[in-house]
């Protein structure tokens, strides 16, 4: 019997990904209420292109940063400002 083929997955380069997700799609993928996503933008955790939710476009990197901040808020009981700072510092640390 032939071995089961291993599936091949396309990898998306996080740092270079374009702004492809609109606001509702971003919230759906993130499974987060729109109000919470607005707060993530307001506190500088994520940086969509465009002005205002109707025109916002998000990158895969925003998705990563949003999920990271939500884990930090949930697990370390941080507030949004603290999570925004932690995400920024973790990213800088990673680049060193």
């Amino acid at each position: 019997m032939a071995p089961t083929p291993i599936p091949v997955f396309e990898a998306e380069l996080l740092e270079e990904g374009g702004f492809s997700l609109d606001f509702s799609h971003f919230c759906a993928v993130l499974q987060c209420p729109e109000g919470e996503a607005v707060q993530l933008v307001r506190y500088g955790v994520i940086h969509p292109s465009g002005s205002g939710p109707q025109h916002w476009r998000f990158r895969a990197l925003d998705l990563y940063r949003a999920r990271l901040s939500r884990r930090l808020i949930r697990d370390l009981e941080l507030d949004l400002a603290g999570a925004a700072l932690a995400v920024e510092l973790l990213e800088r640390l990673r680049q060193l």
Partner: peptide, 12 residues
């Protein structure tokens, strides 16, 4: 993909 560099991240 072509053109990745060290320290970058790939999302699957």
């Amino acid at each position: 993909p072509k053109g990745v560099t060290e320290g970058q991240r790939l999302r699957i």
